[in-house]
Design a protein around this nucleic acid. Sequence first.
DNA 1: AGTAAAACTTGATCTGTATCAGAAAGTGAT
DNA 2: ATCACTTTCTGATACAGATCAAGTTTTACT
Lengths: 253, 253
Amino acid sequence: MAMTHTQSRFNSTLTSQCQNCSLSALCLPIALADEDINKLDQIIERKKPLKKGEFLFRQGDTFDSVYAVRSGTLKTFNITSFGEEQITGFYCPSELVGLSGIDSNVYPVSAKALETTTVCEIPFSHLEELSTQIPSLRHQLFKVMSRKISDDQQMMVLLGKKNADEKVASFLLNLSNRFKKRGYSASSFRLSMSRGEIGNYLGLAVETVSRVITRFQKSELVHVDGKEIEIVDFPEMQKLVGVASDCGKITQI
Amino acid sequence: MAMTHTQSRFNSTLTSQCQNCSLSALCLPIALADEDINKLDQIIERKKPLKKGEFLFRQGDTFDSVYAVRSGTLKTFNITSFGEEQITGFYCPSELVGLSGIDSNVYPVSAKALETTTVCEIPFSHLEELSTQIPSLRHQLFKVMSRKISDDQQMMVLLGKKNADEKVASFLLNLSNRFKKRGYSASSFRLSMSRGEIGNYLGLAVETVSRVITRFQKSELVHVDGKEIEIVDFPEMQKLVGVASDCGKITQI
DNA sequence: AGTAAAACTTGATCTGTATCAGAAAGTGAT
DNA sequence: ATCACTTTCTGATACAGATCAAGTTTTACT
């Protein structure tokens, strides 16, 4: 039956291992010895896929795990004092979500799937315990958190100092870099988030995002077809952003 | 001789210990057993004071230590692609500077003293090593980094969604909270940064900061005298910011 | 496939904040 | 104390991007 078939596909996902995971070179297992990867593997739970719009966790939920995205995309967001949503990040495969919950034992943001998304759940207490036994894992964790801090600071620069063109160009190049790092095309990809979500994230109105993208299209910087985007003129885009010093280092705008 | 005298004062500072430090309840030693505090104490170097304008480290320097501020204030900033400074944070006593350097082994920002400032240097490799032996220290470190991540995300909300009044009010209440936590007055304090630096940090022009503060003064929200500031009408200020949901949790805007 | 809702685009107008300009008040060095 | 320099304040003007208003396309559900 179809049901059973689907179920079995899920199971195969659920039983997959860090060793076989194509993301292991980017995710936590970096530089772990085989036996260490095994230990890590044992504490990780593969969860069944989230459908578009489903929550991974909600602002205020008790924190107990961080999650590595396996496929799909997530956004994290805050609900501000007057009920508006403020997106604080988008998460691609191999990226870790939920680190901001460690401090207060409560997630300070909500995480929601932008498309069908699978994640590996990593119970934090186990991860912490394991990091005692595996120094390189501990170091890796510190690095991931440190990276997040410097990325967020780059984002603060973007929000505080850049104009609409620069914001959108930075955003697109940043996505491009992240795709490239995962072995996908750096020039052609699909935006899993809406124009509205891009605007929300960048501190711009939807209309502005739309206009900027149209303008980029007209000046042959990019080709756009709905959510499909192709970056045509990298040099010019990089010039807009302020080139090397910025976009190279940012993993996540 | 004056020289000798000064020198000896420095020495007394340099030999002070975590146990006697009034900041230990806020800094890393939180919840450490006495013997553990001793271990931590041994890896920490008290440095001689930085004068106003001196650098603690520069963007691009090799990372090897994080620093706890003992007295005074620091700012961290980036130099953007076209040479302008973008301030990414202000650091008060007990706060940890330099965590963003762990990832790349290079500080991605510069840190400069806003006034005479003393810091404790904590060589990171030692700290990491020590965190293996002391689980509560390791946990504390994760918490500090996690807190920084969620604080930075609040800052992103501020930069992306708030208007000038809300930004300045958030900034002042945030400082107020940080002073309060350290046992100083929550209502009266001295701004160690210039209007220009506040504006830079908040994504506003100097003139706007000045105007907003003047307006706050006229509507009796605050009393200002140069760098001295007194928050008079907390409820109204909190209303501006969006009250509870925001300012309570933010340690560092 | 058909329809309702959501997302996107484009144009016209409005507005908050930047920018420009100059005066006033502080600050530091000689 | 004086001078040069920096910071702060205040006013006038300009403009990037928000908001408002439609129209069009895409998406999702039955």
